[in-house]
Design a protein around this nucleic acid. Structure first.
Length: 269
DNA sequence: AAAAAGCTCAACCGCTCCTAA
DNA sequence: CTTAGGAGCGGTTGAGCTTTT
């Protein structure tokens, strides 16, 4: 079904907004509100499309917008919510008064994502170090490219499938895709990190990802997912001021105890 | 001091959802 | 039920700014 373009391109201005345009938009909305964005620019005398006006207002001109750097608390909130909700920026924005989805998205891509990635590298190194030091010459750590079928399926869902699954069970599908995003590299391979537990259970990242991303009978509640992701946080807290030498057994006991307590169903897998 | 590289963020684009006719 | 159009969302872009070499 073909659609008319959202606005007539001809004669409409694009690019950065001038102060004058801002003032026109602000005063118009203060007087009339914005019942119809499409008609607004015409009524207000702006050579912009309605979409552009809406974006300018919601992302920049709204009086309740909080400007300036994000606080640590806000960043933590974003990270936490992103773990739970995935890239649903507008939903995340509702939990951060005064912040816009666009702003949050930018912060995520410019700061938080990189921070998490570097943190992940750090924890990865720590795990590696721990496995070697704890088990002596026995090599428990193995690194190889691996793509789980389940991940591929999740990643390559059609937009329709993804949308509908989001609306049907708010957090399962999109959550899993966010996990995939965090756990895979940019060329769609993922690094499998295998960990042998004291009682012989063998876990690796592809296991976690399969368990967490597959839909259907074994859908895991988002809270459980957060618990799993909380492991990373625990590791971050534990490792933040430490070097490899400090990878002590207690930390790992805490982590695996946490897993066993919170997610027994996974260990039975 | 100048050029190159990296970073930030406002804005655009294309898509889907929702709803009224 | 179908269609059209408005609203909103998330991904992406690129100009401008900052930092590094």
């Amino acid at each position: 079904m073909g659609r008319a373009p959202c606005c007539e391109k001809l004669g409409l201005k694009k690019g950065p907004w001038s102060d004058e345009e801002d003032q026109i938009l602000i005063s118009y909305i203060q007087q009339h509100g914005h019942p119809n964005w499409r008609a607004l620019p015409k009524h207000a005398g702006l050579l912009r499309c309605g979409k552009s006006c809406r974006l300018r207002w919601t992302n920049y001109l709204r009086p309740d917008i909080k400007r300036g750097n994000f606080t640590k608390e806000e960043e933590d909130t974003i990270i936490h919510l992103h773990e739970k909700l995935g890239n649903r920026w507008s939903l995340i924005a509702t939990k951060l008064p005064g912040r816009t989805d666009n702003e949050i998205k930018n912060v995520w891509h410019t700061h938080l994502k990189k921070r998490l990635e570097s943190h992940k590298t750090t924890t990865h190194d720590i795990k590696k170090c721990h496995m070697k030091s704890k088990c002596g010459s026995k090599v428990l750590y193995r690194e190889e490219p691996a793509v789980s079928q389940c991940l591929v399926k999740s990643k390559h869902k059609s937009p329709n499938e993804e949308r509908s699954s989001v609306s049907n069970h708010e957090s399962s599908s999109r959550d899993s895709s966010s996990v995939v995003e965090q756990a895979t590299t940019t060329n769609s391979t993922c690094v499998a990190r295998n960990v042998e537990l004291d009682h012989g259970t063998f876990l690796d990242d592809s296991f976690w990802l399969e368990a967490l991303s597959c839909e259907g009978d074994n859908v895991i509640e988002s809270d459980s997912l957060t618990n799993v992701l909380g492991i990373e946080t625990l590791m971050e807290n534990t490792s933040s001021n430490t070097s490899c030498n400090a990878c002590d057994t207690n930390m790992w006991n805490d982590i695996f105890t946490h897993i066993e307590e919170e997610l027994p169903e996974l260990l039975e897998f």
